[in-house]
Design a protein around this nucleic acid. Sequence first.
DNA 1: CAGCTTATGTCAGTCTTGTTGACATTCCAA
DNA 2: TTGGAATGTCAACAAGACTGACATAAGCTG
Lengths: 170, 170
Amino acid sequence: MSDARPAQSFGGESLLFLTDEQLRQGIEAMFFAYRGFTADPDRILAEMAYGRAHHRAIHFINRAPGTTVNNLLAILGVTKQSLNRVLRTLIADGLVESRVGTQDKRERHLFLTPEGAALESKLSDAQRIRMRSAYKEAGPDAVAGFRQVLEAMMDREMRRTYANLRDSAT
Amino acid sequence: MSDARPAQSFGGESLLFLTDEQLRQGIEAMFFAYRGFTADPDRILAEMAYGRAHHRAIHFINRAPGTTVNNLLAILGVTKQSLNRVLRTLIADGLVESRVGTQDKRERHLFLTPEGAALESKLSDAQRIRMRSAYKEAGPDAVAGFRQVLEAMMDREMRRTYANLRDSAT
DNA sequence: CAGCTTATGTCAGTCTTGTTGACATTCCAA
DNA sequence: TTGGAATGTCAACAAGACTGACATAAGCTG
């Protein structure tokens, strides 16, 4: 990493000579921001016997109702055993319903129960409030840039998954 | 969350009527991007007996050489027991040096050894390569927005910590 | 100096969440 | 029809977070 050069600015628009220092500030920003990003739902979850993994499962089941375990696995990027433990407790607690597939009986289709949907709303609301506030503070142009950089930072496969979810929005 | 209104655009500049759908896309972008953000160092760390916790400690010790345990605790936001387990292994493995404070002998000042600095470089390089590539792809304006939104998303205290680290850059 | 506070380290125990290994069920194709 | 592939479940284990209790050393204050 010896190609660091000072950033140059012309009329507010910097050329892309990125110093290690600038990049490291971005790295630290991601670290601290992610903490804030998860803080509010974490607080809610801590009151119950749940963790971040439960939140993620609930989020994406709500996002794609009827999704299979395998599909959820690909989105979350964990092992099926790890996901299964989380799903088991959510099903036992009546937040998620698992229906055997009609065509392929090996598959389980996942749905939120009304109770599950209620928790999803509570968690999402908390997270959206912070996101909305950050968006408002930074402004519309910043938000567009934010989304662009995040997307460019994803692995190829995650980028595809992300785009699929985004474009499947009703 | 019943105040959702369709986003309106005028000449590429949207007003800030943020729909839940737009916010949720931001939430998912953060989730997928953070995975990419940590993926490269995680791969390197997995080959050794280390994890993400070791990376974080090494990163901030490199960032602020001579920092005390207490200071590191505040930055990382974990318990001293948790940090201590990590530091103990790093010191035992000769990656970190702990020096008793000269003025206040209760304090331990932390430094990377040459071996520790080498690992830090290796990890940072991997992470910076991805960050640099994302920055290049998104462009300079996007980068500025990215940083603004991230900063607005942090907790107040983390924001202060982040700014202190940023401004202490040589 | 005595006693309180601060900084650090350690031990023990628990929880969440990731892992691998083994296994059951179901589907499909040779 | 039978063997392999896909899907999901159970069990055991490891990393890394947490709390609580306690020890030690050093600074500070009356």
